[in-house]
């Protein structure tokens, strides 16, 4: 029984925190943007605008849900959930702290230590795109359709490189479990052993989360909002929550694989973990504030002609070095 309670508490705390962080990332993004763009950003609701995400959430809940006339109603409602659930669930295997002892019981600070953790994450992040494509298709409208097409094309171009970019780390650590990967970085974070892999993962994760400069599926100035053009109210908010949850999850994965996860001196592990996530989130925002958007065909060419060969080379080079020096 206590086992079950512990798991439930962990799930509640972790997912609650994830959703809260994701919501506050919208605030942070707007503040970071304002900083870059010489303006103030939201600073009226609560201290320094800190209640803004809550106000936005309440506002969106009370908005009317508009469904296009010829939309597929079931899919139209269901698609945002398909995007959100994997974004949340993927976080389950990410360790956010060391083993702690509470009331004399040892508790691992991760929800589930799956021994194929990284495959689980890939499977779920691949699922998320279905929500985008189905939502776009269910809208039965032209701009979302183009957005959905772009999203699926983007997925094909990036998922391979995304997987291959992490393969080097997996080869070095010899495990697919994220807990094991953090354990392997006790002395040296893998960013020093896999710099190319890190850069590749960074690029792929931006594409995977549909963020600028690879935000083609929504491409506001071209597709008036892309896949979510027809969405309003909470359905719209769900898509956005999913996007930010995805960003947080991928930041967490990047931190786990390359920056030693929760490891760090002096500060408690959870704080270190959050700081690393925040650093990646800031990078996301910084990038969106300063770069123009790539074109659809350029993005595909970049994915297939640059990223994929590079990631394959990286895997081969890693393999050769491991075998040669018998690591």
């Amino acid at each position: 029984m206590p086992e079950l309670v512990i798991i439930l508490v962990k799930i509640l705390v972790a997912f609650g925190a994830l959703i809260l962080i994701a919501a506050y990332m919208t605030w942070m993004e707007r503040r970071v943007f304002a900083l870059v763009q010489v303006r103030y950003g939201p600073n009226r609701v609560g201290l320094a605008g800190l209640l803004q995400p809550i106000a936005d959430g309440i506002k969106l809940m009370f908005k009317e849900t508009i469904i296009p006339d010829r939309a597929d109603k079931f899919l139209f409602y269901f698609a945002p959930a398909i995007t959100l659930i994997p974004a949340l669930a993927a976080f389950a295997v990410v360790p956010f702290g060391d083993t702690v002892t509470i009331f004399g019981k040892k508790v691992d600070l991760l929800i589930a230590d799956v021994n194929v953790g990284i495959l689980y994450i890939f499977a779920l992040s691949g699922m998320g795109v279905y929500g985008v494509v189905l939502g776009a298709w269910a809208s039965n409208s032209k701009y979302p359709l183009l957005g959905g097409l772009r999203s699926s094309a983007q997925l094909i171009s990036y998922e391979l490189s995304l997987g291959l970019s992490l393969l080097g780390v997996v080869m070095i650590s010899g495990t697919l479990s994220l807990k094991g990967i953090v354990a392997g970085q006790a002395n040296l974070p893998y960013i020093f052993l896999q710099p190319v892999g890190f850069l590749l993962f960074l690029v792929c994760m931006i594409a995977e989360t549909n963020r600028a400069p690879f935000d083609l599926p929504e491409a506001e100035s071209e597709l008036t909002g892309g896949f979510h053009t027809e969405y309003s109210s909470m359905n719209f908010a769900t898509y956005f929550l999913a996007e930010y949850c995805n960003m947080v999850t991928f930041s967490a994965v990047a931190a786990t694989f390359f920056l030693g996860g929760w490891r760090g001196p002096i500060l408690p592990p959870v704080v270190w973990f959050l700081l690393k996530i925040l650093a990646f989130m800031f990078f996301f925002m910084w990038l969106r504030a300063t770069t123009p958007r790539l074109r659809y065909d350029q993005l595909m060419a970049f994915g297939w002609k640059v990223l994929l060969p590079l990631s394959i080379l990286n895997v081969i080079a890693t393999a050769v070095i491991i075998v040669m020096f018998d690591l």
Binding site: F33, V36, Q37, V38, P213, A219, S221, T291, P292
Partner: peptide
């Protein structure tokens, strides 16, 4: 023009 191509910051700088 920059906003159309996705560069948001130039937009606000120019308006300044």
């Amino acid at each position: 023009h920059a906003l159309d191509i996705g560069a948001m910051t130039v937009f606000l700088w120019c308006f300044r």
